[in-house]
Nucleic acid binder design. Structure first.
Lengths: 151, 151
DNA sequence: CAAAAACCTAGTAATTTACTAGGAATAAAT
DNA sequence: ATTTATTCCTAGTAAATTACTAGGTTTTTG
């Protein structure tokens, strides 16, 4: 599992879609403006998301992107895996000798941990994130917004 | 939160220490051999780990590294943060206008998610990973070890 | 037809990762 | 005391990844 800014962009963009794509498709130009990500980079990310069925593109004027399936069926792990290209957990796949036991032990421990993280991210879906928003609205358009990130 | 191969190296190395550092210090040369990471790169990672008190170095022949505190007190988040340099969660810290509400919403959602992941990794400590090993030993030194990573 | 959008490809700047090289300080062993 | 094994430190760099730029094409609406 890998969790980088690239994955963050993808998750953020998908959240944008989940929030705004209910009625009309959302254009990449909008997301680019909203999130401060370059248009072409978004195109690349969305090519990956589309190939995994996570978004659906609508061409032509008035077009844009919808979620490819209900937000409740899209996990964070789905999104990150789509753009981040799976990383092998250990290095001992085949080519290295995993027989000495020692190396393999730490590898299998790491493997377990990775699985835990993956399972965790598999259990969170877009809909849950959106629903949660309604509980504790914050970051209102007031003067104090700029320091809400102090921590 | 960022979870990259660099963080993986650090966690794997710390696991190695937790497993082998009970009596004698573990040398970076050993870890380098065990895990297939270059010695100098390990030195850099351990400089970061040391500065955060996660490991203690012992110089001279017979030296090496110990854990800086009990394995039960070292979380995975501790380790990753030590080497990975904290990544700001959102981009709207100050410089960008977070007032429109729209961008800020996805940002706060992402912020929530990051926090969840961070909390999750904070709750897992080295000792737990090591203990878990005893439950289901696998990856035994047999002929079949090489394909245990098939998935 | 014109315009707005997805869609596609190639190149490249910027950043991060991982390593190389060379040493200095410290402490054990001979 | 010298040698040796180790941490500790700095600078440079190759390789990989991230993020972007540029330039198109297709599709669909008006």
């Amino acid at each position: 599992m890998r969790l980088s800014t690239k994955g963050r962009y993808a998750v953020t963009a998908m959240l944008d879609l989940a929030l705004n794509g209910a009625d009309n498709p959302v254009t990449l130009a909008d997301i680019s403006n909203n999130q401060g990500i370059s248009l072409s980079y978004l195109e690349q990310l969305f090519a990956a998301l589309r190939s995994k069925g996570l978004v659906k593109g609508v061409r032509g004027p008035g077009g844009g992107y919808f979620l490819g399936k209900p937000a409740a069926e899209i996990s964070i792990a789905n999104i990150i895996c789509a753009v981040d290209e799976w990383v092998e957990f250990t290095r001992c796949r085949g080519k290295q000798d995993c027989h000495s036991g020692q190396r393999c032990l730490t590898h299998s421990l790491w493997d377990d941990l990775s699985k835990q993280i993956f399972d965790f991210l598999t259990e969170i879906n877009l809909q849950e994130l959106v629903d949660k928003r309604d509980d504790h609205k914050r970051c209102k358009p007031t003067k104090t917004t700029l320091d809400h990130q102090a921590a």
